[in-house]
Design a protein around this nucleic acid. Sequence first.
DNA 1: TTTTATTTTTAGACTAGACTAAAAATATTT
DNA 2: AAATATTTTTAGTCTAGTCTAAAAATAAAA
Lengths: 222, 222
Amino acid sequence: MNTILTTSAEENYLKAIFKVAEKEPGPVLTNALAAAMGTSAASATDMLKRLSDKQLVAYEKYRGVTLTEAGSQLATALIRKHRLWEVFLVDKLGFAWDEVHDFAEQLEHVQGEHLTERLDEFLGHPRFDPHGDPIPDAQGRWIRRPQARLATLAPGQRGVVTGVDDHSSAFLQYLDELGIGLGVEIILIERTPYDQSTKVSIGAGESILSEKVCQNLFVRIM
Amino acid sequence: MNTILTTSAEENYLKAIFKVAEKEPGPVLTNALAAAMGTSAASATDMLKRLSDKQLVAYEKYRGVTLTEAGSQLATALIRKHRLWEVFLVDKLGFAWDEVHDFAEQLEHVQGEHLTERLDEFLGHPRFDPHGDPIPDAQGRWIRRPQARLATLAPGQRGVVTGVDDHSSAFLQYLDELGIGLGVEIILIERTPYDQSTKVSIGAGESILSEKVCQNLFVRIM
DNA sequence: TTTTATTTTTAGACTAGACTAAAAATATTT
DNA sequence: AAATATTTTTAGTCTAGTCTAAAAATAAAA
Ligand SMILES: [Mn+2]
Ligand SMILES: [Mn+2]
Ligand SMILES: [Mn+2]
Ligand SMILES: [Mn+2]
């Protein structure tokens, strides 16, 4: 029951380890972590020693790192906080989905009793954030939704947008221009063999989406 | 128009300088600042050099420190953010007035465009925080209210509670027990010459308030 | 106007978190 | 199995922010 004190830097590393491990199963390598954090490999090694001392990661020299149960819970709580704040910023303060990440990156580190649960309640227990990512509950349980990349759909199939893989402002703003957002229905018309660009129907109009766009869009197939 | 980058530590010192200067006019002395910050005088001196380099304070060795225009604006913006977040925590998340200070102490340091203005708008442009303290507007303008310490009222006078001088949890919770909060009307019945303790009428009942309590309560005389 | 007391600054040390450059370990080729 | 390439760690340095102890400046008292 004794709560481990963590700095913002430590928390950011824990989250990064969690996210890298999510994509590539197995231990997270130092270079991958450093790349995810935008720091040098030396800095990552340094931090891994600190996190290891605090029992938040299992770290073996030259072999990579995995989160301990405590580390995993902390990372999950961080992601929960990050995503709840994003919902607040979009739903309550009226920010666009491409504007909220940097704020949430700071807000997720605010410490104190009950804040997250009060926020969660105020927001009506949202289960997904403004980018369609699931928000783990207070016990750290995740919701899994069946979803597929738009790139995997065949002509004639339809899907409802449930999320994005690329969270960059550039991508999100481009989607806005295309009229694509969470819940929007997309009908796949045809795919060009040459470059896999795809003609789709969105609401009233039609658009051509590059392969890159189709790879970064998640849909629920209808 | 070039925005000065500040750390949380620098911001906390700026706010402390502002607040000490508010109480005691004239330059803020190193020891007073260190006491307000809960750090050593050596640490305060160190920080004063940094703030002076950034042109946020005018610091003269052994003579004390005053905020520059830039420093004063920054401190005011900090106080604005702190108090707006307190309103959010009480009005929207349902925290009690004695629970929000530590959260606001962190939230005031969240950086980014438009956040404060969006929050202000969401909250309906509140002009006072949950402790009755004025919230400066986006231009840094302050509202001054005529108010007096309850200790200065004479028997027979009545006042409406507008604020507190002591912001401690202990004091605020004691006020809760007494049924005293912002907007509550207090009628002064009599004051004992011996220790200045004061019999008052609050709503239905009567209470005896110590001199300390009366000194820390602000009222608008009716 | 000295002496003494108080306040403030400096000096030196520590931690967290970053960096670069060099060394060591591991992985891949030949 | 050596040689080479890649990855990771170590060594050394830097900054922000803190501390304690000592020195210096200012204020108060004798
Ligand atoms: Mn963060
Ligand atoms: Mn998100
Ligand atoms: Mn603060
Ligand atoms: Mn307040």
